[in-house]
């Protein structure tokens, strides 16, 4: 019988780096603006990999521990579809929203819809941008990731991942 491999963090493979670079470019950023030390959690048999930005002083200790569950800032998940960014990453990048990267800003009413995992329509959008974008409220606080889309000449935001997840997951 094959011994079960302990979950551990490893450096990203070249293809995984490429996926992260593409994601960073889609946000108008270099990878270094997103993460200093990205590492993937390797769990035996998993079809996806959670990716973390692990501070150097944390990474130094990693080799000494077993049954790792997570470490550092959770950046997102790489699966067959590509990179799915996390809520902590939305927060990290949201400080760049006002001038450096394209984000979507919604009204307070829009925030309510979004946090319930519902689509936000044009009347509740203050700033819109197409594609996968950080969604912020009127104070500039990140509330998740959404997809800026246009249908029938009307702009909207489809929720991809919102902070309400923390409640819906019950933890």
């Amino acid at each position: 019988m094959q011994a079960k491999e302990r979950p551990h963090l490893r450096k990203l493979r070249r293809d995984e780096y490429r996926i992260l670079h593409l994601f960073a470019a889609s946000q108008g950023l270099e990878l270094e603006s997103i993460a200093h030390n990205p590492m993937a959690l390797e769990v035996g048999g998993a079809r996806y990999h959670d990716v973390f930005d692990v501070p150097i002083h944390v990474a130094r200790v990693l080799g000494r521990v077993g049954w790792l569950y997570s470490a550092g800032l959770y950046l997102g998940t790489i699966d067959r579809s590509g990179f799915i960014p996390s809520l902590p990453l939305a927060h990290r990048l949201s400080r760049l929203c006002s001038h450096l990267i394209p984000c979507v800003r919604v009204t307070w009413e829009g925030e309510k819809f979004f946090l319930y995992g519902r689509r936000v329509l044009e009347e509740n959008i203050e700033v819109w941008s197409p594609g996968l974008r950080i969604v912020v409220n009127p104070l500039g606080e990140a509330i998740g990731w959404g997809l800026g889309a246009e249908r029938g000449g009307s702009r909207m935001i489809e929720p991809i991942k919102d902070l309400g997840w923390y409640l819906r997951r019950g933890g």
Binding site: D53, P55, H57, V58, V61, L62, V65, G66, W67, L68, Y69, S70, A71, G72, L73, Y74, S86, L87, P88, H91, R92, L163, Y166, R169, G170, G171
Partner: peptide, 22 residues
């Protein structure tokens, strides 16, 4: 319980940690 712990660490935006199940 470790899922809830990870969720709180993420929600409160901390990064200087290692989480071990065991």
């Amino acid at each position: 319980r470790i899922r809830a712990l990870r969720s709180h660490l993420n929600r409160m935006r901390f990064s200087s940690y290692i989480l071990i199940r065991g």
